[in-house]
Nucleic acid binder design. Structure first.
Lengths: 250, 250
DNA sequence: CCGCGCTGAATCCTATAGGAAACTCACCGG
DNA sequence: CCGGTGAGTTTCCTATAGGATTCAGCGCGG
């Protein structure tokens, strides 16, 4: 059975405590296509400048061009692909050092504002942040394990690590009492992911990031706004350094 | 650079001075549909919550559903419409007072950062800002004239005024040496337009806005960063007051 | 040797058609 | 009186087809 009619509202309120976090999500084909293409672009399996044929992608994915077209409109907004009218879509050119610096600046602006709005955290917010950090630690361990094997299959672990990292930051945005900050940060997040992908960094960065996140979490626990801001600033400065360290601006 | 055909570079450079501002823009149908729908939503000709039927809009616009669908994906990202899978699109609910305050806060964060990055302006930037301000003054006069007639046709003038107002602010973003700030501000701008539309304000606000813009321009001319920041802060505080003054949070 | 025009295939863009799901509303049993 | 059920209609979602445009390759004239 595909759908849950859920006509009995009385029972719904009774279960509200259990399924408030899982709104049954019906997905059209275009959402799945979007996820697939996003994964492809973030993994770096396509060269910048390469053309992305609508019909070709539709054939490869086994769907018709219409949902692919919709997904491309969505991707166009992330900045990962560029569109030329009547000429199709192409993978966006790689980020230059200058653009990377701008990206980190813009992100810092949003993140520091989010911290100022989120601290002191509510009890619920603190729980979420702790959970996100714990997941980040686990993902970091998995990355280190997969990299020790070095069998070429480290991408899934890396992807999971990136998601956990972003989830930690996103938690702060979700509790900063300004929904637009979250929206803005999310619109920047694909570019941030791409930046990290282009500058393949080593295991040491993972440890540093985890340590800095831990410092942020400690400061957030105390409820000291300025201390948390300072830890976040330090973390973002680290991110900046590590990102710009090795960037072969093609 | 990837592939700039640019075969006739000699002639291109000869004409560079004349057509650098007018890149011939080929538009597909979906771009025109997007503009039409954006106009419709910003004008307020549709009630919040009203369903926007793909087929119906396609019939009304005299096109097929496919370009309408693409335009809706684009609109969905602006927050002016909401989408439920397998249920279609609806006009987004109106902004509550709280959301308006959040919006002004987020906008202020970006605008103040832009001023800090843009001042002191380059000669070119200063020229652009002056031109934008002059256009804003003209548009303001047109609004006052059209409102004195009060024949129900004030919308075109108001729309033009909004565009000129936003162009002034956008100029600062364009010269702040951070392309992502401009991108973020542009993603917020539809909501800002909608906010102004929902809170129908009078002629007096136009004069105030023009005066505050003039103050910003004067400070920017001197090249004093902090003075310009202060004028922008004052302006945005005025915007906040006027926006929240009359808001019938439905 | 270089620029120019032509031809063909590939691709984009739009229109149309059909299957599937959701909403409306009358009907009926309790 | 109220909740459940079923057909009918509307709408969304996807697939397919056709016209329009771009791009690559080739031959020709200057």
């Amino acid at each position: 059975m595909t759908q849950t009619p859920d006509s009995s509202s009385t029972r719904a309120t009774a279960l509200r405590g259990r399924l408030d976090e899982a709104p049954i999500e019906r997905r059209a084909l275009r959402d799945g296509v979007y996820d697939k293409l996003l994964e492809l672009l973030l993994e770096g399996g396509v060269q910048p400048g390469q053309s992305l044929s609508i019909d070709g992608l539709a054939r490869d994915l086994g769907v018709s061009p219409t949902p692919v077209r919709e997904a491309m409109v969505q991707l166009e907004h992330t900045g990962l692909v560029t569109r030329a009218a009547l000429k199709g879509y192409r993978v966006a050119p790689p980020l230059t050092r200058e653009r990377m610096a701008e990206l980190v600046d813009a992100r810092s602006l949003l993140e520091l504002a989010a911290v100022r709005g989120a601290i002191p955290l509510t009890d619920n917010g603190l729980l979420h942040l702790k959970a996100a950090h714990a997941d980040h630690v686990v993902a970091a361990a998995e990355v280190k394990e997969s990299q020790s094997q070095d069998d070429g299959t480290e991408w899934p672990a890396l992807r999971r690590y990136y998601d956990a990292d972003w989830a930690f930051h996103r938690t702060l945005f979700e509790h900063c009492h300004n929904s637009y900050l979250l929206q803005l940060a999310q619109s920047l997040s694909p570019q941030v992911h791409r930046m990290r992908q282009s500058a393949g960094h080593g295991v040491t960065d993972v440890d540093l990031a985890v340590a800095e996140h831990a410092a942020i979490l400690r400061a957030a626990t105390t409820g000291d706004v300025e201390a948390t801001v300072e830890q976040m600033r330090s973390h973002l400065e680290g991110v900046r350094q590590r990102s710009l360290a090795d960037s072969a601006d093609a």
